[in-house]
Design a protein around this nucleic acid. Structure first.
Lengths: 212, 212, 212, 212
DNA sequence: AATGAATGAGTCTTCATTCAT
DNA sequence: AATGAATGAAGACTCATTCAT
């Protein structure tokens, strides 16, 4: 009755129908909580509020649904939104960048995408690769570009900017990511993250900043 | 060496029978490759070269076998063997420490323990905690102790040595661990690790070494 | 009669769907033949003409299916249908009552419910109790009520009517029930039952009837 | 060392070795509690205090062990010991007979043999038959013989003494056996049994005693 | 004779997937 | 398009039985 006008039907396979998004949302919740093997299509159907059959109208199989959900996460975790403000000083840029990255990694709501993909990467190497390139490598790349610019501008002195970018992002995780992922501590607060990032920024600048 | 003479068979429940070790080896291979849910007891039996029934003679159930295997890995990855040589200079100590840690994380043979445990930590939080304390926290702690001593000795100037130790170990992973775990690159060679560790050491000392 | 129209399918969980009844029928056959432990879900599925999976759509597990089947038998063996005709003389009432009870106990088709439940009562005491109250105790109770009335009416002289009712029903089983259940003899014919019941009636009346 | 002298070895298959009896005792306990299917050879070995392998030294398989145990029970429950005292009056004889029979059926210690065999009789008809003939039919027969004698002696007037004997033994079970076996009541006390038997004796004599 | 480690067939149960409606 | 009943392959686990010692 309230289906779309026949002149412009929304095919089930449509990349962007509301129902499809609804399913992906349910899948996200269940997959991130239980992992690929631990999740069942029944659970996902329940979480998405659709019937099990409907899942298969939109996605060929469990594997496809999982990949679509990951793809979706990759888009969300891509950093198109995050733009570096070139007017900020280096420390500020690093601080904002590190803070954003850590808040992405340690999001309190629901399970961790990166953990879920790490877990399955051996069996779905292509997915692991795609995620790596779209998320961590993307962040590293963006930061490396900025470090390149600053090096060119003479404010930083870095031989390998990609390595440096990665070093910075890794050191931002110190004492935070592993305890969080291993269920030792709850997700860190923004304040706690800020402290660790601040320390990472200081270490980074001590090593790479050009002494005027 | 002090294994029992072959003429004197060991009881099934024996904590250290050859068959038990054989099963743990098979379990290690399959669990680390496929994860807890992805592994099947049948696969494990095949990998261990025993019958499915025998698995249950030595381990109550899949869960218990998984935990025993993890426990075993924790002992192996514990750090008792690694002793810091106090006669070395700080840079050497850090270099050796970082290299050992990275070779542990990126061991080429078989799957990754840390990944497998991260994957299941949400559903087996106690296991996650145990692993965290026995392995990463143990390494961090050992290093932090050393940093404390060096700070007291006036060679380093570190406010929070545990944070610093974690920062160092994290930055050693830069460009190495994630690509390895995400199947982007094969396990890094010792040389490749050495380069990254070297860079991490430089950054660390730039930040924390007392300028004479 | 008031079953849903075939065009309107019934939900799986429905207490009274055709498929559910079909499964219960298969379960009845296999459970009564082989007992709870001896029966396998596979056999039951085959006997019911459904797949093993379907069993679990309608019943949580083997135990639940068994209890549902027993519950169903209790309803069938309940006594609602049997009404005592107060115009009959006492001997006739006893005769009909005994005959009905014995035909229930020694039904030729399929295994014996009472045997199956007796067999498992030690491990499922609640089930044993439920069956006892719903079937034998129910018959005894109905008969005891009648005996009470007749005693009040001065036609019988019984101190403990419940005991007397039980005595009567037990003596109806003489030479019939045990040989049947122990596979010594096939289910007794109605005529054979009638003879034994007749004898039980005579003994009963000799003991309890008021001599006019 | 303390094995029997070589000149007179006790073969494993020996019908009466101590170990054999020990196994039968364990088997009795477990089979009567759990039934044929519910019992496991492991449990039995544990209950008997021998290894699982030893079970198979003395008995071909589970089935054989079960039958041997039943055979043993039949011997115990046979009534060689119970001799009817011909000097007692009829009522006394019936009283003693009924009491003994009921105490056999409702023995408090451990499970019920008759129930265990009833449960399996459909699948092991020969066993059911053997048990019926050795135990209940044996009791009935002994009693029927006595009733025959008393009828011949003019003290009783019974057309079908076997039926009468069975009637008596069945009516002794009134309100006792079924509640006991169905876990409604604990095993009845000797006093409780005596009351019910007394009532059965009265009913029996009212029907069959020759009025002088 | 006695053991108990080892086996593999068989059990209950789950779940991805299909299909008639 | 959406459902949910039905399936059967596969998984964890048990247990009667065998066999080397």
């Amino acid at each position: 009755m309230n289906s779309p006008a026949p002149s412009m039907p929304v095919a089930a396979g449509d990349e962007d129908s509301a129902k499809r998004r609804q399913i992906l949302l349910g899948a996200r919740q269940v997959f991130l909580d239980l992992g690929f093997d631990g999740a069942s299509m029944g659970e996902i159907a329940k979480a998405a509020g659709v019937s099990k059959g409907t899942l298969y109208v939109y996605f060929t199989d469990k594997h496809t649904l999982f990949e679509a959900m990951c793809e979706c996460e990759m888009r969300v975790q891509g950093i198109e939104k995050l733009s570096i403000n070139p007017d900020d000083d280096v420390a500020s840029v690093l601080r904002k960048f590190g803070q954003s990255y850590m808040e992405l990694l340690c999001r309190p709501q629901g399970g961790s995408t990166i953990r879920t993909i790490m877990a399955i990467a051996e069996r779905m190497p292509e997915l692991g690769r795609r995620y790596y390139h779209n998320v961590p490598a993307n962040w590293i790349g963006k930061l490396a570009d900025y470090l390149n610019n600053q090096t060119a501008a003479g404010r930083l002195d870095i031989g390998n900017t990609e390595l440096a970018a990665s070093q910075f992002l890794m050191s931002c995780q110190a004492t935070l990511f592993l305890p969080f992922i291993m269920q030792v501590s709850p997700p860190p607060s923004s304040e706690r993250i800020a402290e660790v990032v601040e320390s990472a920024v200081r270490m980074f600048l001590a090593a790479y900043q050009v002494k005027s």
